[in-house]
């Protein structure tokens, strides 16, 4: 189970207009997905993003669930509460044991994995295990689930709320590897493939410098300034000159999200 707990925060972002921060995250994440990709989805925002992509620009996108589900079709209003329950199997092409669906990552079939996390650092390393010293933690978090496997073996998109306490100088614990200490350190550690493709937040779309692997602002969310993004980040971001503003969610995208999640379980 990829940890979406971090996205359950109820605070409203400063960008909130006629859409919620969660809807913005789902729309931005869906736009990063491409036609024909095989995508490992969690529940909540990541599943909404993948399904939204299927219903807009990527009808041939395949969803995988960690519980052992290949190519399910999500029924509007019946979003599954976890990736391991019968609701995840609706209109699936195939059910396999958990280990075998995870091995698709290792075999190279998975284009994109979706991740959340309690903390992320400048190299995209994610923590969903411990807040504080792991030997004597302030908070023991639920752990990796398949997060480490997904982050180790495929390209990932991270979707999370942009807050200074989450975008930290150094994560307390590397649960799921990003680019580790930058440069070639990820490949040198035995992880020659994958890495963090994008970090999508309610303030910005972020990527990573190809050489140093440090986090960079690729686009600002509508109505957000580069200063705001930096102010909500505990490390120095790379902000290119004349950084673009991402187009806001369209009415069509928001209508599809409302159809999928009419009770706003995940997009409140």
């Amino acid at each position: 189970m990829t940890t979406d707990l971090a996205n359950r925060s109820t605070d409203n972002s400063p960008t909130q207009r006629d859409y919620t921060a969660s809807q913005l995250l789902a729309v931005s994440a869906s736009r990063v997905l491409e036609e024909g990709q095989i995508v490992f989805a969690g529940i909540g925002i990541t599943l909404l993003a993948a399904t939204l992509a299927q219903r807009t620009h990527a009808p041939g996108l395949t969803i995988l669930f960690e519980g052992g589900v290949i190519g399910p079709f999500i029924v509007p209003g019946e979003l599954p509460p976890s990736t391991n329950e019968q609701r995840c199997t609706r209109r699936a092409n195939m059910l396999v044991p958990i280990t075998d669906v995870l091995l698709l990552l290792q075999r190279g079939y998975v284009d994109i994995g979706f991740m959340g996390g309690a903390q992320i650092d400048r190299y995209g390393n994610l923590n969903s295990s411990f807040i504080g010293d792991p030997e004597n933690p302030k908070t023991r978090l639920p752990g990796t689930g398949g997060g480490n496997d997904i982050a180790s073996l495929s390209e990932i998109i991270v979707a999370m709320k942009h807050q200074k306490r989450r975008f930290v100088e150094k994560v307390d614990f590397v649960t799921s590897p990003g680019f580790l200490s930058g440069g070639s350190s990820r490949a040198d550690s035995g992880l020659p493939f994958g890495g963090v493709k994008k970090v999508v937040t309610d303030l910005a779309i972020l990527g990573f410098d190809e050489k140093t692997r440090q986090m960079r602002v690729d686009a600002l969310q509508p109505g957000v300034t580069a200063e705001e993004v930096q102010d909500n980040t505990a490390f120095d971001l790379i902000v290119p000159e004349g950084v673009k503003v991402a187009p806001p969610p369209t009415e069509k995208e928001l209508a599809i999200l409302s159809d999928l999640d009419p009770e706003r379980l995940y997009t409140a």
Binding site: Q106, S129, P177, L191
Partner: peptide, 13 residues
């Protein structure tokens, strides 16, 4: 043998 968990802090605990 497997190709995940390397590079992370999980393996140390």
């Amino acid at each position: 043998p497997m190709r995940a968990m390397m590079g992370s802090d999980i393996v140390g605990l």
